[in-house]
C-alpha cells in the first residue's frame, strides 16, 4: 500500500536569511513581545494555566502561596476509607498487597468478635517511598476500602521510616457506604443487625 508521505519543505533560505539580521530581528520581536506582555500585563492567577486570560503570558505559579489543584481522578496519597462508624472498610483480603507491583503494602489481619465481617486489618502499612502510584490497589479492592483521592501527594520526610504510614495515619477522609454493604457490614455473624 503506498503511504501518504510528503517531503518536508524547508523554509526559504536565501541571501536574506544568510545575512542573519532579518531573522535575528524577527526572533527578537517574538521574545520582546513576551517580555513586554509579561512585564506590563497583570498576571492572571487562575490556577488552570491553560485558561489564563489577559495580556500576560506567564505560565507558572508562585508555588507555596499559589497552588494548582489536582484534577479529579488524580492519584495522590492513599487513604483507608472509613465506614460510617469510623472503622476501616477494609476486610484484610490482601488484594491490594497482592496486586501491588512494588509490594509496598503490608497487612496483618485480625478478627472481629461479633460483626458479620470476620476479618479486619490489625496492621495496614503503606511504604510511600516504595509506592509507584499506579493505582492498582484501588482497582483491586473489592470493598472500596482504599482510595487515592486525598488530593495530596506523599509528603517529604526527613527519614525513611517516617514515610511508612500505618493504619491510623491512613484512616481518614469522609466515610463511604454502598448499598451492598448490607450484605456484610453491620450484622452479627448470625445475620442479625448489630446493636451499637
Amino acid at each position: 500500500m503506498p503511504i501518504d508521505t510528503v517531503t518536508i519543505r524547508e523554509p526559504d533560505y536565501g541571501p536574506r536569511e544568510r545575512l542573519y539580521l532579518r531573522e535575528l530581528v524577527r526572533g527578537l520581536l517574538i521574545t520582546s513581545r513576551h517580555f513586554f506582555r509579561n512585564l506590563f500585563g497583570e498576571r492572571d492567577l487562575n490556577s488552570e494555566v491553560g485558561e489564563r486570560q489577559g495580556a500576560n503570558l506567564i505560565a507558572t505559579v508562585s508555588y507555596p502561596e499559589e497552588r494548582r489543584a489536582y484534577p479529579p481522578g488524580y492519584r495522590g496519597m492513599h487513604r483507608l476509607v472509613p465506614r460510617e462508624d469510623g472503622k476501616p472498610r477494609c476486610v484484610a483480603c490482601y488484594m491490594c498487597a497482592t496486586v501491588c507491583p512494588a509490594q509496598c503494602i503490608y497487612i496483618e489481619a485480625g478478627e472481629y468478635d461479633q460483626e458479620g465481617i470476620e476479618k479486619y486489618p490489625t496492621r495496614f502499612e503503606i511504604d510511600e517511598l516504595r509506592c509507584i502510584v499506579c493505582g492498582f490497589c484501588v482497582e483491586a479492592c473489592p470493598k472500596d476500602a482504599i482510595r487515592m483521592d486525598t488530593g495530596t501527594h506523599s509528603p517529604a520526610v526527613l527519614s525513611r521510616p517516617l514515610a511508612t504510614f500505618d493504619k491510623e495515619a491512613l484512616l481518614k477522609g469522609p466515610a463511604v457506604s454502598h448499598p451492598t454493604d448490607a450484605i456484610t457490614y453491620g450484622k452479627s455473624r448470625r445475620g442479625e443487625p448489630l446493636k451499637h
Partner: peptide, 13 residues
C-alpha cells in the same frame, strides 16, 4: 466521589 481539598495554604496569596 468526594475528593478532599489539598492540605496547606490554598488558593491565591
Amino acid at each position: 466521589v468526594h475528593r478532599e481539598a489539598p492540605k496547606g495554604p490554598q488558593g491565591l496569596p
